[in-house]
Amino acid sequence: MNESEQSRAPGHHAARLRRVLAEDSRTAELGVQITVEGAAVHLAGPVASGRHKDELDRVLREAAPEMRVYNDVWVVEADEPGSGEELR
């Protein structure tokens, strides 16, 4: 298996894309889950803003233009909590 075939192995591909999203300054994202299946890459997990979700999409399409991107990332809720927890 040559180098480009190795990098297309799904495990390597997912690991490479995970690093891209962590290390690209536009995303700096360590908290989303990335799954690669064939020519599809699936993103899931909570982020802080809709703009950030779009940035993940953009960076991923640049890094893997041959892949179909399914971006199911969601913006985490930030509502007032209900009753608190009493300890002891």
């Binding site: 985490v76 809720e77 007032e80 927890e85 009493e86 300890l87």
Partner: peptide, 15 residues
């Protein structure tokens, strides 16, 4: 972590 508590903050009371 906010993605865990899924609210703006969590509250704990201690005596």
């Amino acid at each position: 972590a906010q993605p865990v508590i899924r609210t703006a903050f969590a509250v704990y009371s201690i005596e």
